[in-house]
């Protein structure tokens, strides 16, 4: 407890939150809620892993890890592959086990597992993971699909493709094709030059990272409102392009690891107003808060309430935002696009 406190005090001193950030969180959560948010943002996240069912059974992995003296908890009965390591581990210990080297588990924060738990890809699906690196969600999708069906895992950065490929190999993913292209350009190329349309798409968009402060406290220093506006523009383009590539009746997850409504509900609201879609009500075994319908003078569609906001203080995780979108027809109100 003492150690946790001193770590937290050190971070608070080194990475103080900017005034504008505090004000925005207070507007979202109220004063007390914002205090709770910042308090937990200066602590470490519990260690969570996902059993890679492509290579080993859940019970077998659990028993092996318990043999190391680790205390393993499975917080979601519906998803036993999700595990939390409650024991205190030495630095690097998690990545040094034979089971990790052989790809029997993937170290992944619980919040980052949510998009795929919401999308529920199954064997035979044709799936696009538009911003795939480092591959946590792609490997999760492949496991859920039992290596059947096809995943197109796209990433723009060559350096990050190396990490993506390495994780796909380690986890034994055999049904993925890795492509390197800017996300919007990829969608437009497939849309204009092929008949390829996807059953399921994940747009886990690059974001300002307000939800990942616990593992990346530098985000406190990098945070600024202009960046949020700029990133929101990119996110909107990615979401629009991806939605056009979705089959009618197909499902798309739009997710970010930030809590800024400009990057979350306002993107979903734009999609609602311009496409024939519905937002699906999600049921996931964690405490969530509903989407924000009004933000800085903008009144958003009531549908965005169905989006899920995960605050770190509610489940002792990172922060996250997830929306599940179902495409009802190819109608699109944006000029020149259908």
């Amino acid at each position: 407890m003492e150690e946790r406190k001193s770590y937290s005090e050190y971070l608070k001193e080194k990475f103080p939150p900017k005034e504008g950030f505090v004000e925005r969180m207070e507007a979202l959560l109220g004063k007390k809620g914002a205090e709770e948010f910042f308090e937990i943002s200066y602590t470490k996240c519990p260690v969570s892993i996902r059993c890679n069912t492509l290579k080993i059974g859940v019970e077998e992995l659990k028993s092996r890890l318990e043999n190391y003296g680790w205390e393993i908890r499975q917080p979601m009965s519906e998803f036993p592959e999700v595990m939390v390591v409650d024991s205190k581990l030495n630095p690097g210990e998690l990545g040094k086990t034979k089971e990790h080297l052989l790809g029997y588990y993937y170290v992944q924060e619980i919040s980052s597992m949510l998009p795929m738990l919401a999308l529920r890809p199954k064997a035979g699906d044709f799936v696009l993971d538009l911003c795939a690196s480092p591959g946590s969600k792609t490997t999760q999708a492949a496991a859920m699909m039992e290596n059947e069906g096809t995943i197109i895992a796209n990433e723009l950065s060559m350096g990050r493709i190396g990490i993506l490929n390495s994780n796909l190999e380690r986890c034994g993913v055999m049904n993925a094709i890795v492509t390197r292209k800017e996300g919007v350009a990829l969608c437009e190329r497939l849309l204009n030059k092929s008949q390829i349309r996807f059953d399921k798409i994940l747009v886990d968009a690059p974001c300002s990272g307000e939800g990942t402060l616990r593992k990346s406290p530098k985000t406190f220093l990098m945070w600024n409102p202009n960046m949020i506006k700029k990133i929101a523009g990119v996110q909107k383009q990615l979401a629009v392009a991806a939605l056009r590539l979705l089959k009618v009746g197909g499902e798309m997850i739009y997710s970010t690891c930030t809590l800024a409504p400009e990057e979350d509900e306002m993107i979903v609201d734009f999609l609602i107003k311009n496409f024939d879609i519905e937002i699906e009500q999600l049921k996931l075994p964690l405490k969530f808060r509903e989407g924000v319908c009004s933000w800085e003078g903008n009144e958003l569609s009531g549908e965005v309430k169905k989006c899920l906001r995960l605050y770190p203080q509610d489940n002792d995780t990172d922060g996250f935002f997830v929306a599940k979108i179902k495409k009802l027809s190819d109608e699109c109100k944006l000029e020149g696009r259908r």
Partner: peptide, 25 residues
């Protein structure tokens, strides 16, 4: 080894459209 549902023609179609950096295992 590739275990996806695509046949060879579909794979080559994708290859012609997009820069492929990895396929299967």
């Amino acid at each position: 080894a590739f275990s996806g549902d695509l046949d060879s023609e579909a794979i080559y179609d994708i290859w012609r459209l997009l820069p492929i950096e990895g396929i299967g295992l």
